[in-house]
Design a protein around this nucleic acid. Structure first.
Lengths: 399, 399
DNA sequence: AGAGCTGGTGGGAACGTGCCCACTGAGTTG
DNA sequence: CAACTCAGTGGGCACGTTCCCACCAGCTCT
């Protein structure tokens, strides 16, 4: 950590106020409570603005209350509700004349069907939940999650399906999630980064709610999943290190209660065995997919095996931590130690030196789980999908 | 870009297949169509698994169809529907006896109120949309968005409100968003990164849908907003550079059709004027908040003003691009050129050298816009909130 | 010419909930 | 003791949609 940062207040000469008080004050303001609002060090350009006076939302009643319903449209078009419904839903059994009348009535009134009412009768919400556990690795520092979100969002954009994002940090949020699922606010669930003994997948399965995992729990996971070829990718990475003449290859592995973690470690060990190199216990340290955890793991590896000449880290973020720790201990990369990561996030291009890594198609994983889920929602009797996507070694300067 | 990466197929010895074909095939699989499924280079551990046979979702009919309704509960508890509703919604007008009967019936049946039906009658969905335009800066490479998402999610977790994430890339997705808004699938909208002439905010306002912006369009923006003190923060950054003895201070500004871009440039220029340094046109280049754009801008700055001795970049990501370009052109940071960024994302700690930057409370911005929106939804007559949060200079090694 | 089909149509019911309002019975008041 | 209050209760209705089914007109076929 380059944590020795000096800080100066922006407020230029004015005392830096207690940050807790500041937060509290802000919350009060955000809740609109009337209180002292002079706001030390913060500009309050607040208040009613002239144009709208005391009624800030322009004509909320009219805009909200008098929306045209299917009945209004039917009356204007001179047809029954059913005919309007048929036109809206693209049924063939409507005469050309009636269709035109309905369409022009819809255009005139600016009618948009109420999705909630529709959902009530069809028991479909046209929304899926994307669940991201934030406990172990934070959205933002771990690029994997962002990429998955992008892929999911893109795949969903083609359909009328909405994406409900649920970050799960603690037990309270976990409960809220199960609540949301029980309320049937979504037609299906996408789970990212599942741990082996997580109760949620089983819960979803027994609730009969379509569920697709990004990353499986086991090879024979009963739920549909899409994941990268972790074993194969890791093996390729280690073979690459062997090709570079490295023999003392250490591993910063991922959590062993996740298949990603286990799979990548296993692939690594298989490649070593293949080359006739015995697996040494003290050349393996388990990280938690965070940069800080990887630094700690790396530190312990250097103590246990000072003669190591290469490190395979089970994620780019961990590889970044490995690089920092190696540099802190005066090892040169790649001269003294080669480093390989896993994922090929944009992070890999920005480490120093740029990181050799195993590319996994993260965004495509996102897109594929989304499409798979939509398909399972559409057709509940379809067999489970199990898909393992190829990886690819990207050689840069760290090896 | 360290784009000169060599690539090897993971598939070890087998030919790398055409990637377009691969994608197409995957989509086919994801849609569950029956086709050739041998899957070159990809493992297909697919198919019905033994336990469930041809009916993979366990008892979907029962789980989906026979959920207890308020009527079921009422019957079991020996009360009317209204009483159950009252208990569920925490009304006081229920006898202790009835309440207990209802609660035990709820527990026995595992009753959860149907939020869709509830939404139909209350015309509330208990969901808000978070809209992130992805055209200019990608979620994932720009840490700002992730941090906002975290903040929003955390603030929403305390309530029963769901977060609908909408990434808007192109016009089609834009239309879908307006559609979604028209369908009233959300109670309010959070907008991030709005451009000056964006039609969406006005649309939302005239629709009477509560809307809060992260970052304003103008100082007197008619919509509620929460933003950082861009002008003040930028001025602090430049004053810091002046304190370091720099005099030829260049700026890589943000897009000038956004208030963030304009405000940070203006703060920068104000600080220079304060110090009696004339603003020079050729010391300003406009970037687009991407790393690549910043590199291009930096390149042009170095051509126009080779004697520059400091750069203020309007975002961390752009500062990272500036650092790369400076290094590529053989300038040392901070010896030859000082660099300051804006945001203090985790990125700033990982550049080389670590970046001096203006910290903005991004996650707090997310939390605040969420709370503000909830408050406006709850109480539509509340005056608009305008909140400018303080920034703070964080000094690291790049200056 | 009558029976049978078939494309086109619309009214009724249902989805599950909240809210209005009318009702009950016990307690309080004049 | 009658009138009156009031906490507690439940039935009916509405929310906006889809789906089932009954219906109708025009056509073909025996």
């Amino acid at each position: 950590m380059s944590g020795d940062a000096k800080r100066e207040s922006t407020g230029r000469g004015q005392a830096r106020q207690d940050s807790r008080e500041q937060v509290a004050h802000r919350e009060q303001v955000a809740r609109g409570e009337q209180g002292t609002r002079e706001g030390h060090g913060r500009h309050e350009e607040h208040g009613t603005h002239e144009e709208h006076g005391t009624r800030p939302h322009p004509e909320p009643a009219k805009a909200t209350g008098s929306r045209p319903t299917i009945k209004t449209v039917a009356a204007l078009a001179g047809v029954g509700r059913t005919t309007v419904s048929r036109v809206v839903n693209g049924s063939e059994l409507v005469s050309e004349k009636a269709r035109e009348a309905v369409l022009s009535a819809i255009a005139e009134l600016g009618y948009v069907p109420n999705s909630v009412a529709r959902g009530l009768v069809t028991s479909r919400t046209n929304a899926v939940a994307l669940v991201i556990p934030e406990s172990e690795s934070r959205l933002g520092s771990e690029p994997y999650f962002s990429a998955v979100i992008r892929g999911v969002s893109a795949a969903l954009a083609d359909t009328r399906t909405q994406l409900q994002l649920t970050l799960v940090r603690d037990q309270a949020e976990r409960d809220q999630l199960t609540q949301s699922v029980a309320e049937r606010r979504v037609d299906g669930v996408l789970l990212v980064s599942v741990h082996e003994h997580d109760a949620l997948p089983g819960l979803l399965e027994s609730a009969g709610l379509p569920t697709v995992l990004a990353g499986r729990r086991r090879e024979d996971d009963p739920l549909s999943y899409v994941c990268a070829d972790n074993r194969g990718g890791a093996a390729t990475a280690v073979r690459h290190l062997l090709d570079r003449g490295r023999r003392r290859i250490a591993t910063v592995a991922g959590p062993q209660d996740m298949e990603v973690g286990r799979g990548r470690l296993r692939g690594c060990q298989e490649a070593l065995m293949e080359a006739g190199i015995p697996t040494e216990e003290h050349l393996v340290a388990v990280g938690d997919f965070t940069e800080e955890g990887a630094r700690t793991a790396m530190r312990s590896l250097l103590e246990r095996a000072p003669d190591l000449d290469a490190v395979f880290a089970a994620s780019d973020l961990m590889a970044a931590g490995v690089l920092l720790e190696l540099r802190a201990q005066g090892r040169r990369v790649p001269e003294d130690v080669s480093v390989v990561g896993f994922e090929d996030s944009y992070l890999a291009r920005h480490t120093n030196p740029p990181l050799t890594t195993v590319r996994q198609p993260t965004e495509e994983i996102g897109g594929t789980i989304a499409r798979t889920l939509l398909h399972e929602i559409e057709n509940p009797a379809v067999p489970r999908t199990r898909l393992v996507l190829d990886t690819e070694l990207v050689v840069r300067e760290s090896s």
